[in-house]
Design a protein around this nucleic acid. Structure first.
Lengths: 124, 124
DNA sequence: TCATCATTACACTGAATTGTGTATTGAAGG
DNA sequence: CCTTCAATACACAATTCAGTGTAATGATGA
């Protein structure tokens, strides 16, 4: 079995052709989106994309929040399998396990911009 | 006003090149993802993609939930600007305002599948 | 107008989440 | 060994949210 880093999402059957999401599948997916359903986590993830191998303190500075709060959220992201860590001296660095989550964030951002434009057009 | 369904998201600057999300922007985006951070809403949206112009009762049947609960969630989706409604007799039909949200769901689903495969490979 | 059914509004309960404050762990350096 | 600082664990208070049960609205048909 080839050891391959997934950076793109494999093409799958479109939504219309899939059987209705089971409760279990829907629950998994909901937990995934829930990761991105927080302004704090979104900003942390964005900071991670922008910075090069930052450690926790860097991220706390970037989002201007207390280390405890940032550590809490980062731990959630690690538990979810979104991020991974490695120590360097007394500092703990964070990095993405899979960049797909960033792509998802990007898609959401585009959609949000679209919605804004749409509203401006239709509502004036 | 031309009746046009927007189905593609405009290309934008990649995440790395954008300034760090402001609290406001991050909040908007978080609310967007929060819509998809619920197994019930995901299944309702999926049912909407699969069915042709369903009304509330259809959707309640599809997800096997009480009409009140379904109506609550649908109302949230309408308030968010994700769905729109039109009456047909005593029935209220729901449809997407913009299919981008479905694309986002699709991306999330792919990512979830990928993560599963990944886990199977690395953890055995 | 009246009866009936579909849909929605409203108040409520239980569960989950976030950031805070405090205490603890862990590593670097004298 | 001891001090110092980074990072985390833990309990707590405030907030948010989903589904339930009941009541109200709205349309259909006699």
């Amino acid at each position: 079995m080839p050891r391959k880093v997934t950076s793109a999402c494999a093409p799958k059957a479109p939504l219309e052709e899939r059987p209705l999401l089971t409760l279990e599948k829907a629950g998994e997916l909901a937990r995934l989106f829930d990761v991105l359903a927080s302004d704090t986590r979104l900003r942390l993830l964005h900071a991670l994309v922008r910075m090069d191998d930052p450690y926790m303190g860097d991220l706390a500075d970037a989002v201007d929040m207390k280390p405890q709060a940032v550590s809490n959220q980062l731990r959630r992201l690690v538990d979810m399998g979104i991020l991974d860590t490695h120590r360097h001296g007394s500092h703990v660095h964070y990095h993405f396990v899979d960049t797909c989550i960033a792509k998802l964030m990007y898609h959401g951002l585009c959609l949000n911009d679209e919605a804004h434009a749409h509203r401006l057009v239709s509502a004036g």
